[in-house]
Simulated assay, not measured.
Amino acid sequence: MNDSERRLALGSFLRNLRSSISPRDVGLPTGSRRRTRGLRREEVAQLASIGPSWYTRLEQGRDSSPSVSVLESLASALKLTPNERRHLFLLSGESLPPQLNGEEEIISPSVQMMLDELNPNPAYVIGRKLDFLAWNRAAEAVFTISEPSPPHDYNLMWRQFTDPVWREGLENWEYVSQRIVAEFRTSRARYLQDVSFKRLIDDLKRESTDFVRMWQHHEASSTLDGYKKLCHPTLGAMEFEHITLQFPNDPDKKIMIYMPHTATKSRLENYLMESI
């Protein structure tokens, strides 16, 4: 879209957000004579510490260029989700700045229910630092995620480079590892001040010369999807088609799904039945 269309879309986006928020949600009195659904323009301006007339220009799609600090203030005032924040910056023509620190990553019961319904397809959710956040029984059977691996107990990157079982069990370990490192680098760029990333990177550098080598290459992120062949210590050779899905309201979270080939699926189903 051109600049005029983008400004109009930004104004519409802000109006819809404002109308969907109750004054009670942001600590404002509701009052008995309120005619406006949601917040008033001047209330949003007050919460974001910007001028009411300037905020009105934004909603009306008039020529204006909000700074990054103003956009961050609006995102905070309107309690935007990560995806809404990204959309706000996109419509404003600004690049999304790095996050200082990530919020706690929480998985809802409905997501866990969805993972359970995917059995016998192994599936798990990873967060911004590639931590395992949730998984199903099939994923546990294949990857033994619940067994801690100190000091980064439930981190995919840490296991990829320090766990010999993971290394020996993946047919194309080098190829997959390069893509995991590229994905991790992209995520880390959005959280440059998050000290937990630095701790993980420093520990990986100490423990794995392969990680040091790949980390220095600065490869662009590319898909992890496609054919995967694993060698399981109990179930033997296993073949999967792997796909990655993002959460629409939080792209830092990803669902990794492994769809087993026919023979693998049969063995997995029998293994899961026997382990009940």
Rank of each mutant, 00 (worst) to 15 (best):
L58C: 09
L90M: 15
R37W: 07
L74I: 10
Q46Y: 09
D63G: 06
E43Q: 00
R41K: 10
L90V: 14
S49C: 11
T30N: 08
Y55I: 09
S53I: 12
S65D: 15
S95Y: 09
I50Q: 04
R33M: 03
R35Y: 13
W54A: 12
G51P: 05
S65H: 13
P97Q: 03
S92K: 12
R57P: 00
L71Y: 00
L96R: 11
R34L: 07
R37F: 01
L91A: 05
L80G: 05
T81V: 10
S73M: 05
A48C: 07
A45G: 08
S65I: 05
A77M: 06
R37H: 11
L78D: 01
R35P: 05
P97E: 11
H87W: 12
D63C: 10
H87D: 11
L71W: 01
V70I: 12
E72P: 00
S69C: 04
P52E: 08
E59A: 10
G51M: 03
T36F: 09
K79T: 14
E59C: 12
S92I: 13
G31Y: 08
F89C: 05
S65N: 15
K79N: 14
P66I: 09
R62F: 07
R85I: 10
A77G: 05
V68L: 10
G31I: 03
L80D: 04
S92W: 02
A77F: 02
E59G: 13
S49Q: 14
G61V: 08
N83D: 13
V68F: 00
L80S: 01
L71Q: 01
S76V: 14
F89D: 07
L96Y: 14
I50E: 00
V70L: 06
L80K: 10
G51L: 03
T81Y: 02
S69E: 15
G61H: 11
G51N: 14
R37C: 05
S65R: 15
Y55T: 04
P52Q: 07
L78E: 02
G38C: 03
R85A: 03
